[in-house]
């Protein structure tokens, strides 16, 4: 009945403090710095980039942002076969919020918020299905695109296999930080939790992943 609150740390003596419970890299490096997301900490993009889009023009919004939603969805879920369905669900549920948006620059942030919520719900149900024996896992070697080198492909496959065993809230927080490359503040915002909670979830997921990857050498 106890909640999972592992504090097992994996920082080996002499190595950098890779298990920083803050979830931030002790080196000061920010995963979002090299990330492709391009979204500001607030989740907004510059108004200039999307000034031409009317948030109420459903098809225009869809065609502009569906690839972005799909990419976040894939990074959170890890399964290509679920992405079409997720994208459609996101735009269906996001529509009411989009109708109320006044600034085109806020579209992307709003869609990201809905995507994270939708993905989190799917991951919860996936866990349940898995426990019931209704989900047999996936071949995560396919999660990386064709241009990925073997090392990246192998690492990503192992990471996504481990992610399937994590609580969905920790998984999402960690994926947003380390796969999507979001800033910690934005992770907290997208997950609907405090910055401290986001850091704790990221750190918990990170140490579990390190434990399991350590096994594979």
């Amino acid at each position: 009945m106890a909640k999972e609150r592992s504090r097992l740390r994996l920082v080996e003596p002499g190595s950098p403090k890779e298990g920083d419970p803050s979830g931030a890299d002790p080196s000061g490096a920010d995963p979002s710095a090299s990330g492709p997301s391009g979204v500001e900490a607030s989740g907004r993009v510059s108004g200039e980039a999307h000034a031409a889009i009317d948030p109420r023009d459903r098809e225009a919004v869809f065609r502009r942002f569906a690839p972005y939603v799909a990419r976040i969805g894939l990074r959170l879920l890890g399964r290509h076969e679920e992405i079409d369905d997720l994208v459609q669900d996101v735009f269906l549920d996001a529509q009411r919020g989009l109708d109320e948006l006044r600034e085109p620059g806020a579209i992307k942030g709003w869609l990201a918020t809905v995507t994270v919520r939708k993905a989190q719900r799917r991951l919860k149900l996936r866990r349940v299905r898995r426990v019931l024996g209704l989900d047999e896992g996936a071949d995560y070697t396919q999660v990386a695109d064709d241009a990925a080198d073997p090392t990246s492909r192998h690492t990503l496959a192992k990471v996504y296999a481990v992610l399937d065993s994590l609580p969905s809230d920790e998984r999402v927080a960690w994926s947003l930080r380390h796969v999507e490359g979001e800033r910690l503040e934005r992770v907290a915002e997208l997950c609907g939790c405090s910055l401290a909670t986001a850091k704790r979830k990221i750190a918990a997921a990170h140490q579990r992943i390190l434990v399991e990857l350590e096994v594979d050498g």
């Binding site: 490096a29 492709p36 990386a144 990246s152 990503l156 990471v159 390190l210």
Partner: peptide, 27 residues
């Protein structure tokens, strides 16, 4: 930054979807 974080910083650009018109039309 640990090894995993470094690897992912390079690998994550490969976790992406095809965003061609065929896919968009289907969706």
């Amino acid at each position: 930054m640990d090894e995993l974080t470094r690897t992912l910083a390079k690998a994550r650009e490969h976790v992406t979807t095809k965003d061609d018109e065929v896919v968009l039309d289907r969706q």
